[in-house]
Write a protein that binds this DNA or RNA. Structure first.
Lengths: 141, 141
DNA sequence: GGTCAGAGTTGCGCAATACAACCTTGACAG
DNA sequence: CTGTCAAGGTTGTATTGCGCAACTCTGACC
């Protein structure tokens, strides 16, 4: 086993801890939103007027899954599905005011949590970590 | 919003992608093991003769969840629950030969996958990423 | 001897997800 | 003009992972 292999194993174990962790902490992210709910709201907040299919593609989910999640969010008054101006079967997603407020609130909360977690990290490490982590998650061909 | 806040937001979005990703890829990790199954086998492989409670604590899971997963693994012939020499109600976990082989196989596969994903990363970045990621996931007080 | 704590297991229910079947409507071939 | 098809979603059904609460043992301690 090469030195690089050992690094890969550390990364792999870290991924597992990471995922478990995320799953556990996910559902009390902030007790107004579940992990999935937040994920979707956040996407709509960042890329205005996406379709359900966009979401499905981005996160590798089934369209049925996305559909149901969106129904829930709509029922909760956090987003709307509005008709596409030209394509009739297509619906565009947009946040309601409540949704926007809720998102901002949770984001604030998240940022604070991360800040605490990285409290003693020097800026330089945070910068490096952010860059490498982002490269890692988007490195999918 | 400070520069650090922006980094935190990148990290946060990366975490989301990461988790979604992990969840999706998790279940066809290698079609012999589920994500949870692998997680537990791997732990037993690394820290010999743990108890179910050790697993629960490590991964922040309910003991009931762990118990059921272990039953499944035992039924599949991948591990055994053997009596603790002195504490009667306690059971120690150990891999069967099949379990060990299966674990080695999946690990090999994982390593290859990671290697491809990080193919063009210089050793130095892999080293840094490994170190920071590990620090991050274990930074939980 | 009676209560208690530790380690697990089981009953029950929920949430996220996939897969497959279906609906609706525009587009395009003949 | 009609028939087939693809795009975008929704609904039926089943599975999986998980938590909470109740329960079972069994040794320990007062």
């Amino acid at each position: 086993m090469t030195a690089r292999d050992e690094l890969l194993d550390v990364i792999h174990e870290a991924i597992i801890l990471f995922s478990r962790n995320a799953r556990v902490r996910a559902n009390n992210m902030y007790d107004e939103l579940s992990f999935v709910a937040y994920t979707m709201l956040s996407y709509v907040g960042t890329f205005p007027h996406p379709t359900a299919s966009d979401l499905a593609e981005r996160y590798g989910l089934e369209k049925s899954t996305v559909s149901r999640q969106l129904s829930q969010l709509e029922a909760d008054g956090l987003l709307r599905r509005v008709a596409h101006p030209s394509r009739p079967r297509t619906k565009l997603l947009e946040l309601t005011d409540t949704g926007r407020a809720c998102l901002a609130h949770v984001r604030q909360h998240q940022r604070k949590g991360l800040q605490e977690r990285l409290g003693r990290w020097p800026d330089e490490d945070v910068e490096t970590f952010s860059r490498l982590l982002w490269r890692f998650v988007t490195e999918l061909d």
